[in-house]
């Protein structure tokens, strides 16, 4: 505990650095996965290829990817941007399949009636398919949030600062409290982002709240009583 009190500033700073690494990667992987997932959903023949390719990304060991990226991107090994790109790729690996499933989950009836109403195809994507895929997308995003926040710590091994630096430093100097702080801080950060994601999801999709189903059931009960 003493270690934590005397290093609060450092932990706080590393938390911000960690956020600056993971949040852009999470957002980027979301933005990239939605169109890829939509393609896989829309064009059946592309599904197998796209999902396998993206899934394969996850099989690349993280350290190997960190080392392999700089020659391709032209960035230095220690550049945080390098790490953001790697994390984005892992995010895509996790999210593309969920995104395809999310678009699959939209009721064909609803999609058809939207078309019959006179939605154009782009209008239907933004107005119907994307929002209705939202709940499943959010559930996939939550996995990406937690995995990205924890994966970002590995960057410390190649010298990119993050909460992971508390592990490497703690190991080298044999400070148990520092390692423990790093673990707890990473978990807290992941949980906080996850919570924020759920809140934002509820705000954007008020119709998906679980209590909507409850209310419906109670309405039906009232009507049955009325009818009797």
């Amino acid at each position: 505990m003493n270690w934590l009190w005397s290093n609060l500033d450092l932990v706080g700073e590393l938390m911000l650095v960690h956020l600056a690494l993971s949040v852009p990667a999470i957002i980027l992987s979301f933005v990239a996965s939605v169109p890829i997932g939509w393609l896989a959903h829309r064009y059946r023949w592309s599904r197998g290829v796209l999902l396998s390719l993206c899934g394969l990304l996850y099989a690349i060991p993280s350290l190997a990817l960190f080392v392999a990226l700089p020659p391709i991107t032209g960035l230095s090994l220690r550049s945080p941007l390098n790490l953001v790109i790697a994390l984005t790729l892992y995010g895509i690996a996790v999210l593309v399949r969920t995104a395809a499933d999310a678009f699959d989950s939209v009721e064909p009836d609803v999609r058809q009636s939207a078309t019959a109403m006179g939605y154009s195809s782009t209008g239907r994507f933004w107005g119907v398919d994307l929002p209705l895929a939202g709940p499943v997308l959010v559930s996939g995003l939550r996995v990406v949030i937690v995995s990205t926040v924890s994966l970002a710590t590995v960057g410390a091994v190649i010298g990119v600062q993050s909460l992971g630096s508390l592990f490497t430093d703690g190991f080298q100097r044999g400070i148990q409290a520092e390692i423990f702080t790093g673990i707890v801080a990473t978990i807290v950060l992941a949980l906080a982002l996850d919570w924020a994601c759920v809140r934002i999801g509820r705000l954007l999709m008020p119709w998906s709240r679980p209590d909507a189903a409850h209310r419906r059931r109670s309405i039906e009960r009232v009507e049955r009583v009325d009818a009797a």
């Binding site: 009721e107 009836d109 609803v110 058809q112 009636s113 939207a114 078309t115 019959a116 109403m117 006179g118 119907v128 929002p131 209705l132 939202g134 999709m205 119709w207 998906s208």
Partner: peptide, 16 residues
């Protein structure tokens, strides 16, 4: 389609 009314089974309402 925007000029023709359409009603379907299970209403096809937009749930959101």
């Amino acid at each position: 389609r925007r000029g023709i009314g359409y009603v379907m089974q299970n209403s096809g309402l937009l749930p959101h």
